[in-house]
Design a protein around this nucleic acid. Structure first.
Lengths: 149, 149
DNA sequence: TTCAGTGCAAAGACTTTGCACTCAG
DNA sequence: CTGAGTGCAAAGTCTTTGCACTGAA
């Protein structure tokens, strides 16, 4: 992973600095969709000199390179996800976590997606390049807590 | 519409001030999904004394009352929509407009939605209350401009 | 060696808070 | 009349900008 990100950066004409590598690995090794502030805090022990500013700039660079995806969940800050494959997010109104939703069991998810994109193109004439689907509700853990049978 | 919003506010225990009514009507009479600043600017002639702050507070109140829906499109500010029925939004990367997408021609849209909500409940145990689907791409007008046959 | 990248501080954009005044009920 | 709501100013939060220094290539 270390080698991969280093190579990707260099091939894109960017320098593979320790800060960039650390920020990328932090994102790649979590499922928590952290915001810049959290990434910064996680790296503070390892990189006491790291500035929040650098985290912001780096995440912006990564987004432009397509290494990372920005999530706007309406919480007032941006979250980041190193999983750039199209997938859905679930925001729990109780604990505030953002969870991944994989439609592994949904056989025809790709077909549904293609159908809707085609519908928008044919009915309105818009070209869809990307989408963001964020579900909101109560996650399994918070439901258990409220109703511990 | 004037009477309706007045009654809705009073029934919810809120005062029907001219500012609130004007802000609601502004939102109800546009499809542009304006942010607080735009609502403020639109009302400036009619209400020279109106403060941006009041627009923010009012929109917050409306959101809590379910009169208005907040949209986070990742543009750095919140947009508002008086159409609270579940529908999709399309953000044009070229002109920046946010358009409504109605799935009128999609017979089984409700079924698709119910199926996915059911899938998330059954596979992960999360309860989905709401969702936000934002498409991104190039709108019909911007496509025409680029390629005016 | 050289300039892309970092870190610091300051500024910027959007939104919220605090408080005295006002007007809807 | 009376307190919910307004408007002003100030503060807060997240993010970006400017610039001199540093270290990756």
């Amino acid at each position: 992973m270390y080698v991969a990100i280093t190579r990707t950066l260099r091939e894109a004409g960017f320098r593979a600095t320790p800060q960039r590598i650390a920020i990328y690995l932090t994102l790649a090794n979590t499922r928590a969709h952290p915001c810049a502030e959290i990434v910064y805090q996680k790296l503070h022990d390892e990189f006491p000199s790291l500035s929040l500013n650098t985290v912001y700039k780096t995440l912006q660079t990564f987004e432009e390179l397509g290494l990372v995806r920005r999530l706007d969940t309406g919480e007032g800050m941006c979250r980041y996800d190193a999983n750039t494959a199209p997938h859905t997010h679930f925001l729990c109104k109780a604990c505030g976590r953002v969870l991944d939703i994989e439609y592994e069991g949904v056989q025809n998810m790709g077909a549904i997606r293609d159908y809707l994109v085609g519908y928008v193109r044919d009915s309105a004439g818009h070209m869809v390049c990307d989408y963001s689907l964020i579900l909101q509700g109560y996650c399994n853990e918070c439901i258990k807590e409220r109703d511990p049978r």
